[in-house]
Each structure stands twice: as structure tokens, then as C-alpha cells.
Design a protein around this nucleic acid. Sequence first.
RNA 1: CACCGAUCUAUUUAAC
Length: 283
Amino acid sequence: VVTFTCLINGLQKARRWAGVKELLNKMTEQGIKPDVFTYTGLIDGLCKEGKEMEAMKMFDLMMEKGVEPSTVTYNILINQLCKEGMIDDAFAFMERMNVSGNASDVVTYNTLILGLCEANKMGKAIKLLDEMLEGKVGVYPNTVTLNTIIHWLCKRGGISRALEFQKMMVEKGSGLRPDSFTYSIIINELSKLGKIDDAEKLLREMKDHGLSPTLLDYNTLMESMSRGGMKERMMSLFSEMSEKLRPDVISFNTLIDAAGRDGEFETMKKLFLDMLDRGLSPD
RNA sequence: CACCGAUCUAUUUAAC
């Protein structure tokens, strides 16, 4: 079963649907019964293709066949319901899962919290997070939970609250730690707002938590420096990043564009050659 | 206390 399930998952990623069907037939030919993993993978694949009806049918089919869905199976469908904006049904489905003997896990809650955010119900999302933090639901939040809330607070203009949550994460005893997602979310937001000093401070702070700024972080910050007309700072950030990472095409495009704004043709040329030197192909 | 497979979060650069 494992072999077949792996193969099926691979084909699904490659969107080779005919192959999936063929493999399923081959399985039954050989008397191998699909298990929870197989069905769950199929349901996920169908959801990702937007075939939600098919996914539900698959869910029913697996139950008919006496294969008991797992929390993962339910989580996928809860996610699907959220994506369709059916947040109440998503919660109801979680209820059904619990009744069937599958406990909610952190992914279940993360999915629902994201659903609430996307449905413009930040208040409820945060309330649910608080309940998790207080231990009222029996599942403690993780980095993904906080990242989701932080991201959506940013989108909804709540950057200061987002920063409070980030502070909470770095505190000892919170049981949480920020990851590179956390930082890229906030650095991106601060950059958009033109709060370059704050963004750079955060970039420095990453090292204190065992994280290194990524290409994305540097590129984002450089772009906002360019917008703010802080070319010197941008260039020094660029040389700093060059020591640690390989700047990519986006990095160079950003720099060339910045030089272009001021008509600095020589600089542009230099950058262009530098880019070729490093084996990058211009796009 | 039996190796392997399934689910959740961020995405930066050009033409106003």
C-alpha cells in the first residue's frame, strides 16, 4: 500500500489523472486495499484541484469501505470548507470529527483560524487563539498559529498588535519561537509602510534567535530603501548580503532599477556585468 | 516498544 500511495501522490502532484486511475485499478487487481493514507492523499489532491464535490464523494466512499478517516483527513476537508467561505460548516465538521473519536489537533485549529481571518473575522480568530493559549481547547498554538494571526493583522492594518504577538513569541516561557516566516511577514509589512529602521532592526534581531535573514528579507528591505531614496543604505545592505548569500536576479533587478531612477548609467552597467559574473541570467 | 507515505502560515523586483 505504501508503494502505491507514494506513486499516486506523485502522479497527483504532476496532475497525471489518468495515471492515478490506472494505479487504483492496478491496486484492486492485486488485491491491495487503499488505506487511510491513500484516501487522504486522494482527497487532498481533489481539493487542491478544486474538485470539492469529488473530494466529498471520496470521503463517503472511504467510509463505505470501512476505512476510518483520521484527523488529517478531516483537516483537509475543514480547510476546503474554509476556502469556500463556509466557516460555520467547517466548525460543524470539526464537531463531527470529534464525535467520531478523532481529536482536533493544532493543524485543525490553525486551519480554522486562517478561515476566520480570511472571512474577515479577526476578532473571532484572536479569541480562538487566546483560548488556545489559555489551554481551554486542549491544544497549544504553535509557530504557524501565530504566523497566521500576525500576517492577517498586518493585512488588516493591525501592525502594532502583530508586533505584540511577535514579542510574545520571543519571550521565554511562551513555548513558542518565531521562524523565518514570522520575520518575513513582518519585515515585508514594515517595508511597505516605509518603516525601514524598524524593519532593519528586526532583520538584526533574527540572529539572536538562531535565524538568518533570507534572500527574500534582504530583497524586500532593499526595495523599500530604494523607494525611500536611501541608496547608500541599500548598497551597504547589498554588500552585507553578498557575504552571506547569493544575491539573485531579483536582487539585481532591484538595484538596477534604483540606479535607473536616477539615470546612473555607469552603475547600471557595472551591476549588469557583476550579475553576469555571478552566473545569473537576466530576465 | 514495529522502518517508509497524507493535512495548516509568509513571497520580494520592471511598464504610473
